[in-house]
Amino acid sequence: MNIAQALAEAKSVLVASLSEDQASLESQVLLASLLGKPRSWLFAHPEHDIGAVEAQFRVMVGRRFTGEPLEYITGRVEFYGLALAVSPAVLVPRPETEILVEASLEALASHVSPLVADVGTGSGAIALAIAAQRPDARIVATDLSLPALAVAAHNMQQLSLQEHVDLVCCDLLSAVAARFQLIAANLPYVASGEMDSDSQTVARFEPHLALDGGPDGLAQVRRLLPVARDHLLPGGMLLAEIGAMQGKAAVSLALSFYRDADVSVLRDLAGLDRVLRVRFSS
């Protein structure tokens, strides 16, 4: 079987659950990943025989057909210009989380050598994206999952950012004594009742620890809020990713703890709630 035939076969399988264009694209991504080549190479070598990896490619296509995230199958994802390794031990970093990174960089713009906490780091995406943009920053990245921290450690080493990020295994900030200019958190925010819905097929593959946000999706934010101020320097800020319809509830929750704080919600280009911002006075 050559490349052209393999791609046509894969597309015919994946189109049952994806659009035609998406099925074609993902077929190319899977085969390029397997061959260790860029997608452009596939187009330049349509007659190249893949006999040695044909069976393996069919297994990969089968995994994708069942709904397994493409990123778990290839083992990598692009996030904020970084190539990151991912596995079922971590949540696949989402494009919308880049809004949290942008907000973090904006909050740090006026600080020299800032101290930053990334709570619930998972693959290390947020911490490493900030470190890559702000090499003067010192970042403490925490996670409750040792397997997740192993993925983060691998990414940190691959990107040569180990001098800028410290990984700590703990619940929220329970093992951290430092105080920071910024706390960035991407904690679970899917409501428990939505975990098994058709729109949450990722829940079959991604770690529940990184997804399940309790009855209203805000259980972990509710736990982080009361301890955040004690871990922030005067004038510090908390940024927490939230669900698309959770803004009003998240603001109310934050104000129930901190009536004197400047609390707002950052939205994406579609106008959906994405980040809870809590700014404390100096």
Rank of each mutant, 00 (worst) to 15 (best):
L144M: 11
S199K: 09
R39Y: 02
P93S: 08
R94H: 04
S17M: 10
A23I: 08
D136T: 05
Q220V: 12
Q5G: 11
L173Q: 05
S40R: 05
A250Q: 07
V13N: 00
V140G: 04
R138K: 13
V176H: 03
G235R: 03
V101M: 02
E206L: 07
A10F: 03
D212V: 10
L272E: 08
R138P: 03
S160I: 11
P88Q: 09
G122P: 08
E54L: 13
S282G: 14
L167T: 08
F79L: 08
G51E: 08
R259F: 09
V190H: 01
H208G: 04
A23S: 11
L70G: 01
E241A: 09
L14S: 01
P93R: 01
E102T: 01
L18I: 11
N2Q: 07
L209G: 00
L82G: 04
I99E: 04
D136P: 12
V15A: 15
V176G: 08
A23G: 12
V263C: 13
Q56G: 11
V15T: 14
D230G: 15
A129P: 10
H208I: 15
E96K: 08
V13H: 03
E163N: 15
P188D: 04
I183F: 05
R223L: 13
L225N: 07
D171A: 14
S282Y: 12
V151R: 01
G214M: 04
L82E: 02
A6H: 01
E78L: 10
T201K: 08
L161E: 02
E102D: 15
F180S: 06
G62Y: 02
R58Y: 06
G243S: 10
G243W: 09
V116Y: 00
I139F: 01
T121G: 07
W41C: 12
G214S: 03
L42S: 04
S110C: 15
S19V: 14
L218P: 11
S145K: 09
G271E: 05
A132H: 08
Y189V: 10
Q157S: 15
P88T: 11
V263Q: 06
A228D: 06
S160A: 14
P46A: 10
S24L: 13
F180P: 06
S197G: 10
L238I: 14
S192P: 12
L146W: 13
G236H: 05
G36W: 00
I50G: 03
S33P: 11
A148D: 07
P46K: 03
A203I: 06
S145L: 10
Y189I: 10
L218R: 00
A89S: 14
I242C: 09
L84D: 01
A55W: 00
P135L: 03
G193M: 05
Q246I: 13
L255F: 10
V77C: 00
S40M: 12
G81L: 08
E241C: 12
I73T: 04
R274M: 09
A127Y: 01
A137I: 08
Q162W: 15
P226H: 05
V275F: 04
R138D: 03
T66K: 15
V77H: 00
L266E: 06
A249L: 14
A228P: 15
